[in-house]
Every structure is written in C-alpha cells, then in structure tokens.
Design a protein around this nucleic acid. Structure first.
Lengths: 150, 150
DNA sequence: CAGATGTCAGACCAACTGATATGC
DNA sequence: CGCATATCAGTTCGTCTGACATCT
C-alpha cells in the first residue's frame, strides 16, 4: 500500500461494475441532475415508448410493482408523468411523459453526459462507445420477470 | 410496446450501468454468495493488500469512514477480518483478512463467477474480458477522495 | 368467485449526520 | 491546543411485506 500506487481495487467484473456504479450513484445527485437518477432513467424509457404500460415500465426498471407506484407518485407530483386508464383493460394504467417531464429530462441528460465525461475520463471516445454497446447487449439478455416477481 | 419486442431500455451509458448493476445486486444475495456482495468486494481488496489501512480500504470501497466501521464490524463478528493498531501511528487501524475470511471469500467468488456467466450470457468470452478491462480502466481514473470526503 | 392490477401503510435495512474518545 | 482517526447513537432514506380496492 504505497502512497505512490493507486488505491487497491477489485478485480472481478461484477465487483468493478458495482464499484463504478457506486461512483456514478454518489455523483449523480438530485442537486446535480435536477431530478434523481432513477427518475431520469424512468423518464428516458417513457420518452422512447409512448403509451407504456405501468407493469412494462416496472419490468424495464427492474422494480417490483409496489416500488413502481411510489416512483410514479413522485414523478406525478412534479407533473412529469400522467397515469391514464387503459381503455382496453381498465385495471391497467398507461403512463405518459408530459412536456414538463420532457423538459426536465433534457436538462438532466445534459448534466449526466457531462458527468459521464468525467467518470469515463480514462477511456477514449471509441472505448466509451464500446462500453455502452457491451452494457446494452448484456442488458438485452436479462429476463425482467426473473428479478421483479412479475 | 409490442409484446414481441424487448422491454424498453435506457440508452445512456450511465443508465445502462445503473440498470445492469441493479440486476447483479438483486441476484447476488447473501443466500447465493454466503456473504453480502459488499463484503465480498471488501475481502477481495484485503486479500490482495496485506496490511491495508482502514482509511485506504474505505477510500477504495468508496464508503465514508463511518460506514467503513460498520462494514468491518460485521466482518469482524464473523471472524473474517482483524483490526490491529498501526504501531507507527496508534490512531490508525491495519485491517487483515483471516483464514476463515479467505475461505468465505473463495466460496463466494465461485458463486459470483457462476452468476456472472448468467448475467453476461449475451456476451462472448472475449467481450466479457473487454468489458472487465474497460471497467477496470474507468475505475482506475477515479479519485477516491472526491467521493467519500477523505 | 378467482385472478390481475394498482394502491397504500407499516416494517425493515442501508446509508448519512452529529457527537464522543483516543492519539498525534 | 488543534487536527486526525475511529467509533457509536440517532436519524433518514430507500426498499420490501402484507392488506386492500378495483376491474376482468
């Protein structure tokens, strides 16, 4: 543990993933982004999927239905999303992002990109893209139902 | 939102990182690993760094000194680590992993590797190595003091 | 009626905050 | 004395569990 050396690190992929996520989590605060990171991810999904069912949203976010309600309550109070009954099955809710939500999302995404630049400072632009691609492909293989009791 | 398509996902690298970490976190439970994931990472660092100072450990784990104490208390109770006074500065503690800690670590690492295989099922072995390398390089650029008020 | 969906309230766990003890 | 290190107690936050209402 020489002061000239880097601080010790984990070596496993899963450990590294957890650690790097910790860095992001601690820096992507509500003060920095304007909204919480989880809210940003939620709005991102809603922006890309018009008429998203609440349960689909929960599956994508990997949160159980209970937490999905709480998450949407927050966003609803801020006027960033709306919940509408699904006319085809009135038990269900369709979640849509509002113009105010879009605005908050754009702003938060800008800040997050700046943060990404700092967190991935050690990687070349091409490598960052590579990382994004690998993460996306890995996520693509996940079974949402496995993780959230759908 | 066609049922034939994948569930909607985030597109930003930071969001993907957060999401994939969520998958790992929810699957790498204490029942699966025998110990908590954070404990595993802690033991990994201690196994690779004999005579690690408590504050260096905290910086590596990106936890503030308070949480580091609690984390070590748990490991101490299980007999996985020992805290010794630093003879050079008796305010400090040197943390060492015990044989029992080594055993628990090996066992947990086996289970985590199996889990990694499932979580990264969509990636080829070479791509997994690539991912590990990119994450390690990104972590290498982090300033521990920024994140934990050292 | 049984099953699905969404909602809420209370319990639980992990993290943060502030105060204390010890050594430099 | 001021500063650093570690520790603990109390609080707060996010998440999970179980009960309930609505709809098919």
């Amino acid at each position: 543990m020489n002061p000239a050396t880097q601080t010790p690190q984990t070596t496993g992929t899963m450990g590294l993933l957890s650690q790097l996520n910790r860095v992001v989590y601690r820096r992507a605060t509500e003060e920095v982004l304007g909204i919480k990171l989880k809210q940003l991810i939620t709005l991102e999904i809603l922006a890309r999927n018009e008429g998203c069912l609440q349960q689909e949203l929960g599956a994508s976010l990997m949160v159980d239905p209970n937490n999905c309600v709480l998450l949407l309550n927050e966003l609803d109070q801020h006027g960033f999303v709306e919940r509408r009954r699904d006319p085809e099955d009135r038990r269900r809710h369709i979640v849509v992002i509002t113009p105010a939500g879009m605005k908050a999302l754009r702003k938060a995404e800008e800040k997050l990109e700046a943060l990404e630049g700092e967190v991935l400072a050690n990687l070349e632009p091409a490598e960052r893209e590579q990382l994004r691609d690998l993460l996306a492909r890995a996520m693509d293989g996940q079974d949402p139902n496995f993780v959230c009791g759908g």
